[in-house]
Design a binder for these strands. Structure first.
Lengths: 226, 226
DNA sequence: TATAGTTTTTAGACAAGTCTAAAAAATAAT
DNA sequence: ATTATTTTTTAGACTTGTCTAAAAACTATA
């Protein structure tokens, strides 16, 4: 039987574009604008146009002038495999090498581009087939499938709601360090005690202590309600 | 006090050149020719000339036209740090991810370029501060020092000599697979039983069995005499 | 020591990826 | 519906690293 699994190789730069389009496509209907990609990658829109044309020829994205880009099914698979690598490496860094969750991103950005199927499948096994990365994000399996768990932004809950913290939206070092300082982290039980209508800030109970957090903080924390 | 530790960054390509010059400098007096570097890197001499000029400006090598290149002390430190990374990753792949010693090189070639001091120091600790890589080559410490153990090529021993196999010179997959097939590997006791004057082949005793190997094989195996 | 052969360098070109500046298209405002 | 504004694309240039072909420099030979 002739299997036409494309054995195309992508440069680091191409992989970064593919990954970015994938991330921008979540919670976004329709094509992603070149400007949005440029902003995310801290590059210029003209560079994006060039790259997007190339990726379009490689059948990774669908691109019509002035209409933004969307990933093809093939492109989604490629993106998932990059994200899988990124998140597995993050688990490795935290679980095995004593990195804290705010230190892993930069290194994982490099490690995700290493080409070796055996490396990734063995790493997966070595780590015990983890299902989430250190920020609570799901790790795609070898086929690119990932099961997003049921979760809600803390800022969308109402008084009395309770649940366990299962993820963060912002993964910047500043935000994660702030969470560490406040004792907020994955697996912690959180209950909404009070919501201030004026600024949307809220008082939450975590480990028997009440804590006031801004709406911005709350809208970067994911809770799995119980 | 003003410390002038150069915080220069090198591209993957530059790192590959530096590493190659280092390897070619072992057992070689004087400058390394651009041709030799070109051969080792499977590139063209003209490309080497260009790169060598650049590395010379960065004070990594000393280069005078038509006279080959030598690493500066700084260049040697850079080379040692790349080799340290390469060999630590090889240990990781074999000890933790079930790679065999003939599979590690290609992946380590990629991993050695990852930039993160913390990653390497933590990896070193995680692996238990190994002193040799899976082929018996020494792993430089964080300062670039490495202690080569006392060893001799098997082909240079005489009848009756005995010792433990501590390294291989050729690390190609073909050679290493051959060794696996013959039951030859690091840590194995080897005794020279017979030497055939005609072709330099020799009969060795390993694990109570006698084995005939060619001179070429013997000149790629390092023995630590007892 | 002049010449033949080899090695090394130079000169110019190319591909990938990026940028700036200007043109073209789409969107918004009057 | 026409102008104004913003977004996107094009055109041309630059950088890094590579190549080919030709020139220059070394080395060996007669």
């Amino acid at each position: 039987m002739f299997v036409s699994e494309k054995a195309v190789m992508f440069s680091q730069s191409e992989e970064n574009y593919i990954k970015t389009v994938y991330h921008l496509s979540i919670d976004h209907e329709g094509g992603i604008s070149t400007n949005a990609i440029a902003k995310a990658l801290e590059t210029k829109a003209s560079s994006v146009t060039d790259m997007v044309k190339k990726l379009s020829e490689k059948e990774v994205v669908i691109y019509k002038k002035y209409q933004g880009v969307t990933l093809t099914d093939f492109g989604k698979k490629v993106a998932a495999s990059i994200i899988r690598k990124h998140r597995l490496w993050e688990v490795f860094l935290v679980d095995k090498l004593n990195f804290s969750w705010d230190e892993v991103h930069e290194v994982a950005e490099q490690l995700e581009h290493i080409k070796s199927p055996k490396l990734i499948s063995e790493l997966d096994a070595f780590l015990g087939f983890p299902k989430q990365d250190p920020h609570g994000d799901p790790i795609p399996d070898a086929d690119g499938n990932m099961h997003q768990i049921e979760k809600k932004l803390l800022s969308l809950l109402t008084i009395g709601d309770e649940g366990v913290c299962v993820g963060v939206d912002d993964t910047s070092s500043e935000f994660l360090k702030f969470l560490d300082k406040q004792g907020i982290g994955l697996g912690k039980m959180i209950k909404v005690i009070e919501i201030e209508p004026f600024d949307g800030s809220l008082v939450i109970r975590i480990q028997d202590k009440d804590l006031s957090i801004s709406n911005k903080i709350a809208s970067n924390l994911y809770i799995q309600k119980i």
